[in-house]
Each structure stands twice: as C-alpha cells, then as structure tokens.
C-alpha cells in the first residue's frame, strides 16, 4: 500500500497524543500550577491535533472534511473523526477546570481516557477493517496501535511529569514493560503477517480471475502501459525490498534505545532527560514501523497484476 507521509505522521503522533490525553485523564502526576497544567496539556493536544490536521492533507477536497463526521454508524473513518473531536472538547473542559481550580476531575478524566482509547482503536480499525489487505485484517492491528500509543505516551508523560514512580513501581520499570509489551505485540503481528498472504484469504490470482480450474493463471498483459492510481496506491512494491533492514532500524530506534535510556535513568540519569530522549527515539522508530506497515502490505488488487 502507498505509504503517504501525512498518514504515517498522523497515525504515530495522534496515537502518542491521545495516549497522553488518556494518561492525563487517569491522573498521571504532573507539576503544580496552572502554567504546567497548560503546557503539558498543550503538548498532548498538539501531538493529537497535529496528526489529525496532517491527515487532512492527503484529501482531494479538505474543504468538505466536515461531512466526514456524518457516517459514524457504518464508517470507522467517520467514527475516528467524531471520537477525536469529542475527546478534544472534553479534554479542553478538563484542562480549563484544572488550570482554574488546580484540581483534576477524576470522573471526567476517566471518561476522557475511555474516549481517547476509543479514538486510537478507531484509527487502527480504519486499516484493520480492510479484508482486502490480509496483513492488516486482524485484531492484532488495533492492539499494535494501542500498545505503541500507550508506550510512547508514557515516555512523553514521564518526561514532563512530576513523578519517578507510580505507587510502588518506578516509572523506569513501567516504561520498559510498556515498550517491551508494545513490541511483543508487533512481533506477533509480523509473525502473523508472514502467513497472511492473498492466497490464504482466497484472493490469489486464481480466485481473482475465476480461471484456475482451467490451468495455471499467469498475468500476461496489464490493461495499461504506464502506472495508474491503482498501481501506485495498491500494487506498491518498494517496501519489501529493504524490509529486513528497516525492521531492525525500527526495533532499535523504537525499542532498544528507549529501553537502554530507561536503564540509564535507573542508574541516575535525570528523568526528563532519559524519558525525553527515549520518547524522541521511539517516535522516530515508529515512523519507520508505520512506513513498513503501509509499504509492506499487499492488497488483493495486486493479484490481478502479479501471480499470487
């Protein structure tokens, strides 16, 4: 699938943003004072909104984007929009109350956290719902999105937060666990993707043409002499060439380096420093991971162009 930069940026940063909104809603300890409340909330909000705005950049008609809030009964993309706006509005009220009174309304916070999680889930389901892309069509896809959103948000919240531990557990330990769990889900996703071929879901060249009962079917001549919208969007093949190297880069930047930095934090590196650097590394790794998510994925239209 075509890896549009705006969509990669959107899914990674809005995941981190809504993850951080959820953590703030659940009462993640933050420094005292209205300015701190404003700044940490602004960080979460900007991450979430920057992603949403970037996602409108790939639209052919962004001026009609408001219509995308109308079809939530059937469309995951519409649900994502509705939930994102609902989360942001509720979060805005939460932050105002926090800045003015200095106290955080737990019940509202919990509702916001639920909305934020539902938003991330909907983002993932835009892709996870597509039967046409067998690598994506699994419950593991929302699990991956939620895992990475939580882990990256936790690093961001730790960097700007006022705590080094939540209850008895040091944040270093929680952060390492979150990063490890997120990547474990991704490894399970990658493992499943190996066998989730077009042929495995009945979308190989045989069933695509209905001709396999007559013999081996081989694409002989495509309908067009140059690239088309279909081939650029869905028969994209560059991702598979460097997939192995890029996976290693993603895991090192997004997993190994954040864990290493957390260990340095355990040895005494100041919390804002290790967590801030770990967040930056993880987000860079997730950009690579998300690029692969699109570039490696095969769409059933490919079966009409290459033997599958």
């Amino acid at each position: 699938m075509h890896p549009a930069v705006s969509i990669i940026f959107f899914t990674v940063t809005s995941g981190a943003g809504f993850g951080m909104i959820a953590l703030l809603g659940l009462g993640f300890p933050m420094p005292e004072g209205w300015l701190a409340a404003f700044l940490v909330s602004a960080l979460a909000g900007v991450l979430a909104v920057a992603g949403l705005i970037s996602s409108t950049l790939h639209l052919g008609h962004p001026e009609r984007a408001l219509l995308a809030f109308t079809q939530w009964p059937t469309s995951w993309l519409s649900r994502e929009g509705v939930l994102a706006v609902a989360t942001m509005v509720a979060f805005g009220i939460y932050v105002l109350v926090w800045m003015v009174t200095g106290s955080r309304v737990l019940l509202l916070g919990i509702a916001i956290a639920a909305l934020a999680v539902a938003t991330i889930y909907s983002t993932a389901m835009i892709y996870g719902q597509l039967r046409t892309v067998p690598a994506w069509h699994t419950g593991l896809t929302p699990a991956v999105y939620l895992g990475f959103a939580f882990a990256s948000a936790l690093l961001a919240a730790t960097a700007v937060g006022a705590a080094t531990a939540l209850g008895p557990l040091p944040l270093v330990v929680i952060a390492i666990l979150a990063v490890v769990v997120a990547w474990a889900i991704k490894f399970a996703w990658w493992r499943r993707a190996e066998t989730a071929t077009l042929a495995s879901i009945g979308a190989g060249t045989g069933p695509a043409t209905g001709l396999s009962s007559l013999g081996t079917v081989r694409p002989f001549e495509p309908p067009h002499t140059g690239p088309t919208y279909l081939t650029r969007e869905m028969v994209h093949r560059i991702g598979r060439k460097h997939a192995r190297v890029l996976r290693i880069i993603a895991v090192v930047l997004g997993g190994a380096i954040p864990i290493g930095l957390a260990l340095l934090g355990w040895l005494g590196l100041p919390t804002p420093l290790w967590a801030g650097l770990a967040f930056a590394a993880m987000i860079s790794g997730l950009f690579v991971e998300r690029w692969l998510f699109f570039a490696e994925a095969e769409h059933s239209v490919a079966a009409y162009y290459h033997p599958h």
């Binding site: 639209l59 993309l77 695509a208 239209v301």
Partner: peptide, 17 residues
C-alpha cells in the same frame, strides 16, 4: 466526496479510481 481514497482500498477488485 472528500477524495480520501479509503473506498478504493476497501474494494478487492480495483474498481475505483
């Protein structure tokens, strides 16, 4: 139509451009 292209991704047959 906002031109998001998701319907083309959802179609197994490549019928939308």
């Amino acid at each position: 139509c906002i031109g998001c292209g998701l319907c083309a991704w959802a179609c197994p047959y490549g019928a939308r451009e």
